[in-house]
Amino acid sequence: MKKIIAVLFMLFILVGCGPTEKMAFGKSNDKVIEDISSQEKALGWTYAEIQIKKLYGLDKIKIKGDSENLKVMRMPDDKNSETGEEYKDIYSVRGNYVFQDKVYNFSMLYSLTDEDHYKVLYLVSNYDDSKSISVPLESDN
């Protein structure tokens, strides 16, 4: 029952309370944009929770979704420094989550590939330093 309520809550956040603007995909961006829509923030929050659970094998985490504990920003376009694959619609998500009454921090970078898909470029958390995702990016050099 709790899972159903959580899913409904996330859908409510994604849909919003009023008219929503359709996100444009594949638009070039060359700067950090901090003032993003609530839809973009909700997607970042949702994707972070999914990926943290998947990478660390955790089943019950709670992302701390207030403005003090969660920061979502649009990042400049980038490329894979090894393969040359281009990434647009990149978002940085940084924040905290709670697992078994303990607070952990995380940092994640992902690229939207279309309206329903994304690719994680970077994910790290102090929950387990031995597990992370890190795609080599030109901006890292």
Rank of each mutant, 00 (worst) to 15 (best):
M75V: 00
D30C: 08
F12M: 01
A24F: 08
W45L: 15
I5V: 12
L58Y: 09
F25T: 04
F25N: 06
F106G: 01
Y87K: 06
P19C: 08
K102C: 07
Y118A: 11
M75S: 07
G95A: 08
I5M: 04
I33S: 13
V32Y: 12
G57I: 03
C17H: 03
G44D: 02
N29R: 09
T83H: 13
I52Y: 02
E21T: 14
K64E: 03
D140T: 04
D77G: 00
S81P: 02
P76I: 04
A48G: 08
K62C: 09
D30F: 14
L112G: 05
V135F: 03
N105S: 13
V93N: 03
S132W: 10
E138N: 09
I61R: 08
K102D: 09
F12D: 06
N29K: 05
V32Q: 14
M75T: 03
G16P: 07
W45F: 11
S92E: 02
S139A: 01
T83V: 08
V124D: 14
G18V: 10
M10F: 03
I50E: 15
L14H: 11
G95L: 06
N69K: 01
R74L: 08
M1N: 09
S125G: 11
K2H: 04
R74V: 01
A42G: 15
P136Y: 09
S37Y: 05
Y47D: 08
N80C: 02
I4V: 12
F12P: 00
F25C: 05
W45G: 01
K3H: 07
Y97K: 01
I13Y: 05
I5L: 07
L70R: 14
F12C: 04
K79I: 09
D30H: 15
C17M: 08
V72F: 08
S130G: 10
F9Q: 02
G16W: 10
K88T: 14
L58T: 00
S37E: 03
Q100P: 04
K102S: 11
D129A: 12
E21A: 03
K41I: 14
K88V: 05
K64C: 01
E86W: 00
S134Q: 12
A24G: 03
K88W: 07
L8W: 00
